[in-house]
Design a protein around this nucleic acid. Structure first.
Lengths: 145, 145
DNA sequence: TACGAATCGTTTGCATGCTAATGACTCTGT
DNA sequence: ACAGAGTCATTAGCATGCAAACGATTCGTA
């Protein structure tokens, strides 16, 4: 089964690279795009909220947010009700980039999966869901050591 | 189809993290493990050869090799016939780590895919191969810009 | 044979991830 | 009301990837 995982890793890397290339044409890197996708739907989230939705750590979001702030894509604002919280708000520049970026992402996904049959899509989806469920719920049993 | 790709990304990340955890118990990080797997089969490759086999860039291999050299896993040796080349040779320490690491990797793969049906494995494999083929052969068509 | 082009590895600087340590603020219990 | 505990964001340091610039060696050709 290690071969299956090798294929999964390779495919994901190719997709990530292609995505980064596509996003770069719109002045956004691949990691920043993930932040945008969430904030386009729900603006004004905190770094911690964003981190849990993206399945990354808070420091990762903080660093990405800092780069995005330098790039003029978002602004930080302290929460008036709770001084520990910072809220991230998209700028008009980030709002304006929404349509072309979403379109580019959609096109890339269509392109990558264009040759798959319905059976392949269906079974790949259920297989991936099972793997995710397994990895999040069941202890991977890391031998002795 | 963007949902399918999201699942693929999520699954791959979970697998990579679990792999890094498992490898760390043997004093090796996930990126270094990939180098080991190739050199266990073919010792004495150059950074460039290694890079093309691993689908990464040469600087990535050079940096990883430097860390592995510090960790006592390999040594650099100049090629006597061609002074431009550097060859990477595994130390006894790296050779000794082979069995436990390969075993850990195999167990992790079995665990992650344990609940998949034969249909899911088969179709997922062919779907991934198609995606890889598509991304390596066909131009992703990055709109205008 | 000697010089320019090609081929390598390395260095540098960046983006994206992590963990651990730090600092600021809020909340709880007495 | 206030001290300690808990909750945030941030900073620092590392690993893994990339591209671009650089340096050393070899090859091809005039």
């Amino acid at each position: 089964m290690t071969e299956l995982i090798r294929l999964l890793t390779r495919a994901q890397k190719l997709l990530r690279t292609a995505s980064d290339d596509a996003m770069s044409r719109h002045g956004v890197r691949v990691g920043q795009n993930l932040v945008l996708e969430v904030l386009w739907e729900t603006d004004g989230l905190t770094p911690g909220e964003l981190a849990s939705r993206l399945h990354v750590t808070t420091p990762t979001v903080v660093n990405t947010a800092t780069r995005m702030e330098s790039a003029g894509l978002l602004v930080r604002r302290r929460d008036p009700a709770d001084g520990r919280l910072v809220r991230l708000y998209l700028t008009p520049k980030a709002q304006a980039a929404r349509q072309p970026i979403e379109e580019a992402r959609r096109r890339l996904a269509e392109h990558a999966t264009a040759t798959l049959t319905d059976d392949e899509r269906r079974h790949m989806r259920s297989a991936l869901e099972k793997i995710i469920k397994r990895m999040t719920e069941s202890p991977p049993d890391l031998g002795d050591a």
